[in-house]
Design a protein around this nucleic acid. Structure first.
Lengths: 211, 211
DNA sequence: GCAGGCGGCTTGACACTGTCAACCTAGGCC
DNA sequence: GGCCTAGGTTGACAGTGTCAAGCCGCCTGC
């Protein structure tokens, strides 16, 4: 969802198939172990075909990461809540839900050593996601929310809170009995604590379980 | 610091040198790009020497991760605060400070695809770190702290909060103007918000900047 | 004194990887 | 027709992890 189709048509079929295969491989073996040749194999094309479309490995992973950031930005913008701090809380839950639903994208989105910082799409996508978060923080601050001493600190505070839960979850770092069933409950507890609102009272939509 | 010396002596000199070199390489190029042969080169030994000591690549990274978890456990236990919720807040700041001070260890500690889950040292070290956190949460709960509905949710909430900040920082994901100078301030803001205590009033020790 | 064993490390090989240059081919345009 | 270009292939190269085999110095038991 929400990926960019830049004047495509059937000419970009393979490109799309390569990205889908890449996401699949990332979800299976992790972003570090993804191999261009394996992706080519899954698409039944020659070993150099991926490089033709993406330049090199970091180009391919950057494309995947960009796709992920655009989708994340969409998910955040769609989570409006009831305004003010509740919007920020809703965004937080949406962030965790997106990460859990995108095991083929999220893991490459914060690995600077695997992607190319100067990739134009990636830069644009990252800015889009960050802007959504920034807007929600601004709205929450207008509602009296004020962690730290500056807007910057407030933004990082909000971001890091849900980012930590998302990464621990995706990395399988949570002890087994803490995992699956409680991801949504934990996300809610964290955003409630963070923003000082009671998500349940505000009619919280339950986040999607597992994937 | 605080690594385990299991009956060593000079027999383990190379092993230690290899681990140090590995931490260096991880800090430089990231955990995914670390190469056994490059590490061997830095220690001026043959390309198969690392495999002899650690079995394979995941064995070497597991050893590095275990070292990191033991050091983290020590850092957490050393952060006692003034008791109750303040102890949990102190641990949170210590967590972020440790991550920022260990760019050669922390990045491999939460990459299950790079390490071996069944590595005995790693399992033990991870449990040690988790136990320190668990104890602090229990102490905070006795002090009236109660996010979520269960102890488990409370543990994950506390952990994820600081873990997010630590990983965003190490991955360089924070926009430049949000970065260096404000890591400690942000950590304090987050732990204060999380635990409901005012760290400054409790005589917060400033965390070490940069690395 | 010495045979045997063994931990520590090297050597050499293998399959696999990313990357590059060269090539092929089909379709569109002048 | 001649040409160009996008999309893909082929073949090569250096670098990687891993494995089997071997070398060597030290310790132990006799």
């Amino acid at each position: 969802m929400a990926r960019r189709d830049e004047g495509g048509g059937p000419a970009h079929d393979l490109r799309r198939a390569l990205l889908d295969a890449a996401a699949e491989v990332v979800a299976e073996v992790g972003p570090g172990a993804v191999s261009l040749r394996e992706i080519a194999r899954r698409c039944a094309v020659s070993h150099a075909a991926p490089a033709h479309h993406f330049g090199d490995r970091s180009g391919m992973l950057s494309a995947l990461a960009a796709e992920g950031f655009f989708a994340l930005a969409d998910a955040l913008r769609a989570a409006t809540g009831t305004g003010g701090r509740a919007t920020l809380a809703a965004q937080g839950r949406a962030y965790v839900a997106y990460a859990a639903s995108a095991p083929g994208h999220f893991p490459v989105m914060f690995r600077p050593e695997l992607t190319d910082d100067r990739n134009a799409d990636l830069v644009e996508a990252r800015i889009a996601a960050f802007a959504a978060l920034d807007a929600a923080v601004t709205e929450a601050q207008a509602d009296g929310w004020s962690p730290g001493t500056s807007h910057d600190v407030a933004v990082v505070t909000a971001w890091a809170t849900v980012h930590g839960l998302a990464t621990l979850w995706l990395d399988g770092a949570l002890p087994p009995h803490l995992a699956a069933a409680q991801l949504d409950e934990t996300a809610a507890a964290m955003t409630d604590l963070l923003t000082g609102v009671d998500g349940a009272a505000a009619g919280r939509p339950r986040v999607r379980r597992r994937r």
